[in-house]
């Protein structure tokens, strides 16, 4: 069944989009990520313009992270004070990212920047997660219990001043890396049109040693707030949010996220991280392939002005 999208200006198969929402929703619920880095390329693939895809995906991520955040809230698995500290810097990062987005678009290097950043970030984060996941998997095979004292708990990050205690996460860390991470995620999210959950979760684990119990819930709260405000900002400035497209994606997304969350909770955290690492790495390779292989068409068109 075809439905015409009023802002994207083209008809799409409603069931195809619903299935995409379900699938990405499942993955996002399972790993506690927004899934923007998977959804945006998929929408571009079915013919929606990158600008509309990026803008509309924000509201889809808002819906699925809100679902996730509520269930994590009920389980008391959210560190609100940590989320607030991340958000404070995240908003500044978003503003900087929006500025850079406009500059890159004007000089026609946005696609390249997105491509290169995806490749770098995804392969790097993917490799790190796979390494960590494999080590944990091997430990489990040998019958060793998961290490109670996380190795390297006291790295250089813990030597920084301006420390604050986050009770829910049971950590005592400097605010400097917290703000740094918040800014970076906001910045990257705005430039790449993604929530940044797949970056935020490992960063919180590796740099701040946030325990598995609160890391996903906290990351979801941050993604929820940035993506909700990004929806409003995109709609108010670029007029590119397609509400019809977003609605179909959301309905699929929230249903998928429920099943994904249940599947995810039945799995060990280490194995979950290994799987996410593999997924992230695969998407990174896909982008690398696009950059290196000869494009189908060396020429491309961008609308500068209508009428």
């Amino acid at each position: 069944m075809q439905i015409y999208l009023p802002i994207a200006d083209l008809p799409v198969n409603i069931f195809l989009v619903l299935a995409m929402g379900l699938t990405i929703g499942f993955i996002s619920g399972m790993f506690g990520i927004g899934g923007g880095f998977l959804m945006t390329p998929l929408l571009i693939f079915i013919g929606i313009s990158p600008a509309v895809a990026v803008a509309s995906v924000t509201s889809h991520i808002a819906a699925s992270t809100f679902t996730g955040a509520i269930s994590y809230w009920r389980k008391r698995a959210i560190d609100l004070s940590l989320a607030l500290m991340l958000l404070a810097a995240g908003i500044l990062g978003t503003a900087a990212g929006v500025w850079l987005f406009a500059v890159l678009r004007a000089i026609d290097q946005l696609d390249l920047t997105i491509g290169l950043s995806y490749v770098t970030l995804l392969t790097l984060v993917g490799v790190l997660m796979i390494k960590e996941g494999v080590q944990a998997e091997l430990r489990a095979r040998r019958g060793q219990p998961a290490t109670l004292r996380r190795p390297g708990s006291h790295n250089w990050v813990h030597g920084l001043p301006l420390k604050m205690r986050f009770k829910r996460s049971k950590i005592y860390v400097s605010l400097i890396p917290v703000w740094g991470i918040g800014f970076l995620i906001g910045f990257i999210g705005a430039v790449l049109g993604i929530g940044g959950g797949f970056l935020l979760v490992p960063m919180l684990i590796y740099f701040l040693r946030v325990p598995t119990a609160t890391v996903i819930g906290t990351s979801m709260v941050m993604t929820l707030v940035t993506m909700t405000s990004a929806t409003v900002m995109h709609a108010a400035t670029n007029h590119l949010v397609d509400a019809v497209l977003a609605l179909i994606l959301m309905v699929g997304g929230v249903i998928g996220a429920q099943f994904g969350a249940h599947t995810g909770q039945r799995m060990r955290a280490e194995r979950l991280r290994l799987l996410l690492g593999l997924l992230v790495f695969a998407v990174g390779l896909r982008f690398a392939y696009d950059l290196v292989v000869i494009p189908d068409d060396l020429y491309s068109i961008r609308v500068v002005r209508s009428q």
Partner: peptide, 30 residues
């Protein structure tokens, strides 16, 4: 036409409504 005009002429309200819709659907699912 209704959706298109709302997005072009009342971007902020349109954005807020879309965001509310997202949160409502997210909450409804739980």
């Amino acid at each position: 036409q209704y959706v298109f005009e709302a997005s072009q002429n009342h971007g902020l309200i349109y954005g807020v409504v879309t965001a509310m819709m997202a949160l409502l659907i997210g909450w409804f699912a739980t």
